[in-house]
Design a protein around this nucleic acid. Structure first.
Lengths: 374, 374
DNA sequence: GTCTGTTGCTGAAAGGTTTTAGCAGTGGCG
DNA sequence: CGCCACTGCTAAAACCTTTCAGCAACAGAC
């Protein structure tokens, strides 16, 4: 091993070769400091000439404790000289909490679609000095059990359950003292949930096309009867359609085509768009149920020599990676994964528990794929 | 709170409403079992009428210990009845290890591009009964220091450092006893690294087009002088180009166009392709330095009425999401994130440390974007 | 009868922290 | 002086596990 020791952790970043310690700048062992063993409270106490109690009191600055200014100074100095850091295991053992939360999901972390959710979760956890333990179940009950077991054993201070698609999960009953939040999913056993505000988004997307004058030539790609009605598949797709239909009925509009399919990959969108175009329906505006469907639809349009938005306008949902890669870029209602992650972690960490369903706005990203008629 | 307690963790999954515990099926409190407090070794010992020592010995089945078959049975039964699970904090305190490893990266977890790396890491960690603590630095030295501090404090058994692009990191000197592996990056302080086998991939991609007869009309989109020479930007892009150039010079081929740009987003590919086409160079084959560049290039081709692969063939690198969405799907050398993650975790967890650089093959995904001439 | 070895089991220490209870000393008040 | 309150500090217990050292009982060998 070519690793060397210089204190506990010595950082040397950047291109400038400056050296830091993780705990302050430039820590070098002081005289009489044993570098091979992590210092303990007892070591600090000995060096400061005081008791462990005193050191613990000062380092955690407990309010009621009245130690002389001199003692406080000596303790801080000794801790700094020894580069003391508390032992997390000992502290957890004593305190029963760990400063760590768990995140368990089906496959949020291991697929590309909702990465931003982790960003939100990690950011807030970090702001609150919490670490995050991650486990993915791949939807296997056994993996879920294992993950939960692991987290409960480690005495995580709370649990966030996530899912790739917003659906009803049958999560276990948790120990009463365990705080928990679901994000992009719901479970009867977890009282607080964070979900995207899909009804509103459905309404906004439909309005975008209606307001641009596409009421007479509107098609819907990706109507999904199962997802709309089975909460184990989705609890939000139904709401998304409710929003769409509310906008349509307010405007007295009936779509010229509605294509049913449950899985929303580009090739499904391609096939559906092709079918609609071949049917001869007078389509000028397309509501695609996600960006991948929209992407596929655009491919079908291009093949027939139709242009977006000149010939056909498209609006969609998710704000996936490809939405901004398309030419023109896609007008779409963003799934606010990052904000949902943030909010979930905040709800978990805030002492006041606001149980219930927390809806996070899905902002409409207005880009070039919708053209106003006339 | 609507959470209720039935043992420590009770699972009720699936649509069938079957009930499990995390530790076995259907755990219900036995008589004389206090459900409000997690049982300890002492509780098990008391119930089995034996000492804590005996229980510990049996439950960890230590080889040398000779307890009667009856005692062993009684202990197992008591543990099962109480639904005993060892306290991880106490164990860590005693043992100095935690069964947890840390993963620290710039932004692997929080962006979509390398999610598969986490999948590989988590899978192997899980197979070895290890948990994973995750932290992202966003490339801020302070965040790195904080993450490291946290992990070292928690006494993780090892650390994996990851990066989104394979580059040289200036990681801190770690405590001597801390095992560490870098994945998709290298650091002078960490002796074992996992990287994609880019030279080979560059060669294979170039050969794909050369073998298809595009030697006379080859263009390269995304030549990146800085990335090729500055290891802080990339340690592998240079190798990728070495592979490409080796194939070209073996075939005695000089490209008809080479477009330089360092950032490989779709719009860069679009601009570059447009420029090459407008220059009138007789292009029949495009080597794009990643899939997003290829995607943009195809947009430019389409706009000029050129078709892939009929008019122009494309081969590329990464096997990004969009590679399989394109029509035709893209022939591309896959960045093997998942396999790299797996291998990194295996190297970390295996007791025998194989220091050095471990190259993981980048398999060529042959799809429809390359047409054979004549 | 003594010695040796084995079997089956246990007491107690150690690991590092937090916290309760309390000690010794000092000063003020009646 | 007697009492009280306060200041500045500490001993020891508790959190739960693993493991070292060793005890009691018994069998077999001499």
């Amino acid at each position: 091993m070519s690793l060397s020791v210089s204190g506990w952790v010595t950082l040397a970043h950047g291109c400038h070769g400056r050296r830091h310690t993780a705990y302050g700048l430039l820590w070098r062992p002081h005289e009489g400091v044993d570098v091979t063993k992590r210092p303990t409270l007892a070591d600090v106490a000995a060096r400061a000439g005081l008791s462990k109690t005193a050191v613990s009191l000062v380092l955690n600055d407990r309010p009621g404790s009245r130690l002389s200014a001199d003692a406080v100074a000596r303790i801080h100095e000794a801790a700094r000289e020894l580069n003391y850091r508390p032992n997390a295991a000992a502290r957890s053992l004593r305190l029963g909490r760990t400063g760590t939360v768990g995140f368990i999901s089906d496959e949020v972390t291991i697929t590309r679609f909702a990465s931003a959710m982790i960003r939100g979760l990690l950011d807030v956890a970090d702001e609150n000095e919490n670490g995050v333990l991650i486990a993915e179940t791949g939807n296997h009950p056994k993996q879920l059990a294992k993950a939960l077991e692991f987290m409960v054993d480690r005495q995580v201070d709370g649990l966030v359950f996530g899912a790739l698609t917003a659906r009803l999960l049958e999560l276990p009953t948790l120990p009463e003292s365990m705080r928990a939040v679901t994000v992009n999913c719901v479970s009867p056993t977890v009282p607080t949930a964070v979900l995207p505000s899909e009804e509103e988004a459905g309404y906004a997307v439909a309005r975008q096309l209606l307001d641009a004058g596409h009421g007479a030539g509107l098609a819907i790609l990706g109507n999904a009867p199962v997802a709309q009605s089975d909460p184990h598949v989705s609890v939000t797709i139904g709401r998304r359609f409710n929003g769409i239909h509310r906008a349509l009925s307010e405007a007295g509009v009936t779509p010229v085509a509605v294509e049913d399919f449950e899985f929303w990959e580009p090739w499904h969108g391609y096939d559906a768009a092709k079918k609609v175009l071949e049917s001869g329906a007078p389509v000028t505006g397309l509501i695609c149920l996600n960006d991948r469907v929209a992407f596929g639809a655009q491919q079908a349009l291009t093949e027939r020599g139709l242009r977006v938005p000149d010939d056909v306008s498209i609006a969609s949902f998710d704000d996936d990676e490809i939405a901004s890669y398309m030419r023109p870029a896609l007008t779409t209602a963003r799934l606010p994964y990052e904000e949902m992650g943030r909010q979930a972690m905040e709800l978990l960490l805030r002492p006041d528990d606001a149980t219930g369903e927390h809806l996070v706005e899905m902002p409409l990203q207005v880009r070039g794929s919708v053209r106003s008629l006339g």
